[in-house]
Amino acid sequence: MDILNAVVAVLNFVVIPAASYGAQLALGALGVTLIYGILRFSNFAHGDTMAFGTAITILATWGLQALGISLGPLPTALLALPVGIAVTAIIVLATDRAVYRFYRVQKAVPIIFVMASVGVMFLMNGFTRLLIGVDEHRFADGARFIINVRDFRDMTGLAEGLAFKTTQGLSILMAVIVVWILFWFLNRTRSGKAMRAFSDNEDLALLSGIDPEKVVRMTWIIAAGLATIAGTLYGLDKAFKPFNYFQILLPIFAAAIVGGLGNPVGAIAGGFLVAFSEIAITYPWRKIAGYLFPDWQPDGLLQLLGTEYKFAVSFVILIVVLLFRPTGLFRGKSV
């Protein structure tokens, strides 16, 4: 039995990728859950908002690169993020003004909002295509690895290597910082508390003199920021392809619902739960079994599900939650 190599392999193939993917999902799910908490609908345009924000960030990155500006070992995209967030926030506020506010005044049923968000999704998708096309773009520059396989082997003398990509480390670090700022905002500032109050009890918030339009605007700005950051990190880590951002909608929704729609802590927990399940279930465990039980020669890859079906994992998690606990693990606001 070779526990050390097994642990390294698990870290390398499961824990690190899942933590970084989980961080990206958590940021995405936070955006969905905030919108849900304040505006009370599932925003189907969120995936394409992420794509749009990322596209702007990429364009800004190219601009910076053309000017010869870089961040050394870090991706230049970090420097371009504020541009992406600002433009996305403006677009998202514009859609609220032009689309959603009308239904808010009408007090339309949630499903109409969902429908409208599908229309917005089309628009966002079209804008993204116009801006950057449908092809794949890789825009990560700077140092590729924090730790690469060979250094790790030299350092530890183990047979199994471990790689920790800059983009993975960045995803986790950025998520921690963003979540910390967000929770500080929600729990410590007057505006943040007003948002929570509005999400808790809309009528009472109105009675207390909280301006609903201001809360809604703030929510959109935060959601745009979260979407752009999540999208950019996802794009840095994998590659930017607009269609992937439509597909990531399902794990994001699953994460938000698992945690309880409207509950920010739940969204984070849900993001990591979905990411770890997805990767653990689609990872071929044969190699690790080989370290742990050298005498056992399994026939297959010991892979529970092919990676093509990773979305099925989110779906099954979603179904299980809907069956047994529709309000989510951390008591969301819906039934």
Binding site: K193, A194, S208
Partner: peptide, 19 residues
């Protein structure tokens, strides 16, 4: 529905004084 259920007592009072 006359309180903010997920907020602390203190925060409820703070919200009362929002204006």
């Amino acid at each position: 529905n006359n309180v903010f259920p997920s907020m602390s007592v203190e925060e409820n009072l703070e919200m009362g004084a929002f204006i």
